[in-house]
Simulated assay, not measured.
Amino acid sequence: MSTASDSKVGSMDGGGVRRATATDLPLLPAVEAAADERFAAMGFPPLPPPGTCESLAASLFVLVAGDPPVGFARVEVVDGLAHLEQLSVHPEQQGRGFGAALLAGAFGEAQRLGYAEMTLVTFADIPWNAPFYARHGFRELHALTPGLENLRAKERSLGLDAMGRRVVMKRTSR
Rank of each mutant, 00 (worst) to 15 (best):
M1Q: 09
A4M: 12
S5D: 15
D6V: 12
D6L: 12
S7C: 08
V9C: 07
M12V: 08
D13K: 10
D13E: 12
R18T: 02
R18Y: 08
R18A: 03
R19Y: 15
A20Q: 05
A20I: 04
A22S: 14
T23A: 14
T23F: 11
D24W: 09
L25D: 11
P26H: 07
L27E: 15
A30C: 09
A33S: 14
E37N: 10
E37P: 02
E37H: 08
A40F: 07
A41N: 03
M42F: 10
G43A: 03
F44S: 04
F44D: 11
P48E: 04
P48D: 01
P49C: 00
P50V: 03
P50R: 00
G51R: 05
C53Q: 13
S55W: 03
A57S: 12
A58H: 04
L60M: 11
L60W: 10
F61Y: 08
V62G: 00
V64G: 00
G66E: 05
P68M: 05
P68D: 08
P68G: 03
V70L: 12
V70Q: 07
F72E: 06
V75Y: 07
V75M: 02
V78P: 01
V78H: 00
L81I: 10
L81C: 11
L84I: 08
L84A: 02
L87I: 15
S88L: 09
F98D: 07
G99D: 11
A106Y: 08
A106W: 09
E109S: 06
E109Y: 12
A110H: 04
Q111E: 15
L113F: 07
L113R: 07
L113T: 01
E117N: 04
M118R: 06
L120R: 02
V121D: 00
T122Y: 09
T122F: 06
F123M: 11
F123H: 12
D125S: 12
I126D: 08
P127R: 02
N129H: 13
P131N: 01
P131L: 05
F132P: 04
F132Q: 05
F132V: 04
R135N: 10
H136T: 01
L141N: 03
L141T: 13
A143T: 14
N150H: 06
N150R: 07
L151W: 01
L151S: 00
L151V: 05
R152L: 14
A153G: 01
R156H: 12
G159H: 13
D161R: 09
A162N: 11
A162G: 07
M163F: 11
G164E: 14
R165L: 14
R165D: 14
V167I: 12
K170I: 15
R171M: 14
